[in-house]
Amino acid sequence: MESIALFRVIKTGATNFYRNFWLSATATLIMVITLAILTLTLVTFNITSVAIQNIQERVDISVYFKTQVSEQQILDIRSELEQLPEIASIKYVSAAEALASFKEKHSDNQLIQDSLGQLTDNPLPPTLQVKAKSLDEYPKIAEELSKSNYAAFIDKVNFQDNRSVIERLSRILSAVKRLGVGMAVVFCFIAILVIFNTIRLTIFNRREEVEIMKLVGATNWYIRWPFIIESIFYAIAASIITILLTIPIFNYLLPRLNIYLGTNLTSNTWGFNLWIIFAIQLATALILGIISSTIAIRRYLRI
């Protein structure tokens, strides 16, 4: 008996949804806009975060040693440097390794391969690649290295200061966060109002039916739930439309981002996973729908 009642409640909710098609279309559309803004914010936020992380990972100090410095001397310097509190890690790249990786990197360039073949000596110096614990330490470390008593062994300290880029990205990140969250809040509010109004109109259109339902002994949940079901239909429809819009945008965007940022983002990467994004959209839509229908029912459905 309960399952029949449940089926009838859902059926009534579905009838409410398609009986006033244009009203339902408007409610769904405004929800799609809200979800799209939310998704856009989320994705922009994720992209900026990935970009910052990516650039931060690429920042390091390369210490090029003079070719006559022995490997043992370099390793001794490394262990001394590792004692410094501001240094996170130091990687030693020998001259041979540097050459091998250079060859590999330019394996398809015949000219470089040819000129390398004519050399008898390895032209590349051994290197230490230093990573600091925080970005702000880099200039200090670079300066100290070039001044220290190791200076005699060092050919060149190479440090590219990416801090201004990172700072700019961080500013974008916080702007995205503020603007996105602000817009999302405003549109959530609009969506709640629109759905509230739609449910209110449905209640108004069905007031006779509701009155009769009460008379013939319909339980309160049997009267109320079709209106909540109606808003759940809006939520499901809106999330499906939004995710269908998101998929092609992702397919277009991710490969280009990967080239630009040198990342390997796929639609399985956390933060870009379509299922997770769909789940977030659906959850948001359901919360908005249930909030607005509940308010409408409380205000306009006298039981």
């Binding site: 008996m1 309960e2 029949i4 009838r8 339902m213 013939v216 319909a218 049997y222």
Partner: peptide
């Protein structure tokens, strides 16, 4: 309708 709402 009266019987439907009662779950018959």
């Amino acid at each position: 309708f009266a019987m439907e709402v009662a779950g018959y």
